[in-house]
Design a protein around this nucleic acid. Structure first.
Lengths: 204, 204
DNA sequence: GGCTCAAATGACCGTTGGGTCATTTTTCTG
DNA sequence: CAGAAAAATGACCCAACGGTCATTTGAGCC
C-alpha cells in the first residue's frame, strides 16, 4: 500500500473514531449504533465497514486510543516527578488525571459511566486498567524505597487510590463548578499519605 | 385481592427476580433478555408480563431489592458500632460490605460491573449511591465530633472511601482465594485513618 | 363431572440495528 | 479523454428482542 493511501486510511479512521467518541459521549457506549456513527462522521454506513471490521472494533479502538492517551499523560507526570517525594509525585499524577477529565468531559461518560459493551470487554479493558494499576504500584514501591511509606500491600494500595480517584472524577463531572484539579488532587494525596485521623492522638 | 392471591403474586415475583439475578450475574444486565429470564424462571414470557410492566421494571426491582438489602446490612453494622471509634465503626461496616459480596458474587457483577441499563438509570441508581454516601458522611461527621478525625471535606472523603472499597471488591471478585473480608476491611480502614506514610518523619 | 374464570402460554408482531453487496461515484493512469 | 480500478453508497437482509393477545390450562366450586 502506498504511503498516501495509508495516510488517507489513517485520516478516515480518525474521522470515524472522533465521530464515535462524540456520539458515545452523548448517548453512552451501549446505545451508540453504527448508523449514528456514520451519520455523525458524514459518511455512509458501508464506508464505516471499509475501515473497521465491526461495531465492537470501532468502540474498542476509540476507547483504547483515548485511554492510552490519558495513561501517557499520567506517565509523563510521573516521570517528571521522578526525584520527588511520594506525595508530590502522586499529587502531580492526580492533578494531570483530574485535569484530563475536565477537558474531556464527554469522553468521561464513555470510559467510566459505561458498562460492559461487549462479551469480553472485561478482558480487553482490564489490560489498560492493569497498566494504570502498575503505574501506581511502581510509584508506591518507589515511595517505599525512599522511606516515604510504611510497609504495605502495594497492589491493594494502588487499587484503592485508583478507585477513590475514579469516584472523585465521577463527582467532578456532575458538579457544574468543580474545584481546580490540583485541589482535589491535594485532597486525595493527603488522605492517602496522611490519613484522616486527627494528629493529636494515636487512634486505634 | 385475597391474602392468598397476594402471597402467590409475591412468590411469583420473587421467583422471577431470582431468575433475573442469576441470568444477569452470568451475562450482565445489558445482555439479559426477557426470554432469558422467563426460561430461567421456568415460565412463559407472557407470564413475566403479568407480574412486571417491562424489562426495565424487572431489572430495576431486582437490583434495587439487592442493593437495599446490602445498605441495610451496612446500616446495622454502623448502628451496632455507634459508640466505637471512627476506625472501628468503619472497619466493621467495610467487613460487612466485603463479606456481603463474597456471599453474592454473582450479584456483584450486576451491581458494579454493569453499565447504564436504561435511559434514566443514573437517576434511579444514584438515589441508592447517594444513600450509601450519606451513610459514610454521617459516620465521618461522628468521627469528627468525637475528635477522631481532622478537619476535612466529609463528602469527598466519603466518596473516596466508597470508590476505594468498590475497586477492592472488584479485585476480590477476581481473586479465587481473596483474603478474609476483615483483612481487607482493616487494610482500607488503616489507609483511610492513618494513611500510607511512614511514621518516622513528617512527609510533605 | 361439568362450569367458570383467572392464570399461564407461546406464536406472533413491529422495530431496531449489525452487517452485506450490487450499484454508483471518484480517482488514477496511459 | 477513455476506461479501469478503487472508494463510497445506501437499500436490503436477517436475527434478536421487547411486548401483545387469542387460546389453552387447571383450580375452585356446585
Amino acid at each position: 500500500m502506498s504511503t498516501k493511501a495509508r495516510l488517507v486510511e489513517e485520516f478516515r479512521c480518525g474521522t470515524i473514531r472522533a465521530a464515535a467518541m462524540r456520539v458515545a459521549g452523548r448517548k453512552g457506549l451501549e446505545k451508540t449504533t453504527v448508523d449514528d456513527i456514520a451519520r455523525e462522521a458524514g459518511v455512509a454506513k458501508g464506508t464505516v465497514y471499509l475501515y473497521f471490521r465491526s461495531r465492537d472494533e470501532i468502540l474498542e479502538k476509540t476507547v483504547g486510543a483515548a485511554v492510552d492517551d490519558l495513561l501517557e499523560h499520567i506517565q509523563e507526570a510521573l516521570d517528571a516527578a521522578r526525584g520527588a517525594s511520594f506525595a508530590e509525585a502522586l499529587g502531580s499524577a492526580l492533578t494531570v488525571q483530574f485535569a484530563y477529565f475536565d477537558e474531556h468531559r464527554d469522553f468521561f461518560r464513555v470510559y467510566f459511566a459505561s458498562g460492559e459493551y461487549s462479551e469480553d470487554r472485561r478482558l480487553r479493558q482490564s489490560r489498560r486498567y492493569r497498566r494504570h494499576i502498575d503505574q501506581l504500584v511502581a510509584l508506591i514501591r518507589r515511595g517505599r524505597r525512599r522511606g516515604d511509606l510504611r510497609r504495605l500491600d502495594a497492589e491493594r494500595a494502588a487499587i484503592s487510590i485508583a478507585g477513590a480517584a475514579r469516584d472523585l472524577i465521577l463527582r467532578r463531572i456532575h458538579e457544574e463548578k468543580p474545584p481546580p484539579p490540583a485541589a482535589d488532587a491535594r485532597f486525595l494525596t493527603d488522605l492517602v499519605s496522611q490519613g484522616l485521623a486527627s494528629r493529636r492522638k494515636e487512634a486505634r
